[in-house]
Design a protein around this nucleic acid. Structure first.
Lengths: 119, 119
DNA sequence: ATAATAATTCTATATTCGTTGAAATATGGA
DNA sequence: TCCATATTTCAACGAATATAGAATTATTAT
């Protein structure tokens, strides 16, 4: 993932309603949800929701397909994984958990994250 | 990490210059860097930089201390780790790598991430 | 005290963002 | 065809964002 894509994904997730939308879609699974169902669940106006969907889609975080008169939005998990990798590699020196000597926090023991040595 | 903190951290990182600043600080290590050095490295006006530092600090991503007439900014790795955990738990159903049946991507084998079962 | 250095605060401005209300488009059913 | 449903498009608006210039504060040295 490139920096500009990471910034786009971060910006897309950096908004209350949009984060809710995205989380709902992740929860919903690969089949996604019709826009109306998301609107109902989160009490968002349909036009407002379209706006947010556009952002998420622009960042590659969701996909859409039409089913009858409904638009089905689904989370694109690959993008989130790429973002996590980007943040880990670029913003955690390759290792989360205890990034550098400094990070001495109440970390759970199972969250180590590393990158395989370059080929 | 709470949702509002996650949104704040995401927003703080969702800006080109700020992401650069943060990455530079992470690279610099726990001792941090004087503001002026960051300004020079990234060619940012000192007042603009203060603005961005404020955001990063507000999101808990950096800390400051004074050293003589310099302000030393340093990355707070714990917050980034908390953010990664938040995204993994809340936006990846607890497992990155292959979040759900869907995510069939060119994933490296070493990036599994999980959360210990609740106490 | 004066001057120089380092960074912040203040003011202004152009841009982007999130939301709303009204109108338009697309699909499916009677 | 006419109508209802589902969603998008458009125009408008206040709020927040990113940047720049000028002035200010804090620290150190002379």
């Amino acid at each position: 993932m490139e920096k500009s894509n990471a910034v786009a994904a971060l910006a897309a997730l950096a908004q209350d309603n949009r984060l809710d939308v995205y989380r709902l879609l992740v929860q919903a699974g690969p089949d996604g949800l019709p826009a109306g169902q998301v609107a109902a669940a989160l009490k968002l106006a349909p036009n407002t929701l379209t706006f947010h969907f556009d952002r998420l889609r622009g960042a590659g975080l969701v996909s859409v397909r039409r089913d009858g008169r409904s638009m089905i939005y689904a989370a694109r998990y690959d993008t989130m994984n790429a973002l996590l990798d980007y943040l880990t590699e670029n913003c955690c020196q390759g290792r989360a958990g205890q990034c550098l000597p400094a990070a001495r926090t109440k970390r759970t023991p199972a969250t180590a994250r590393r990158k395989e040595p370059a080929t």
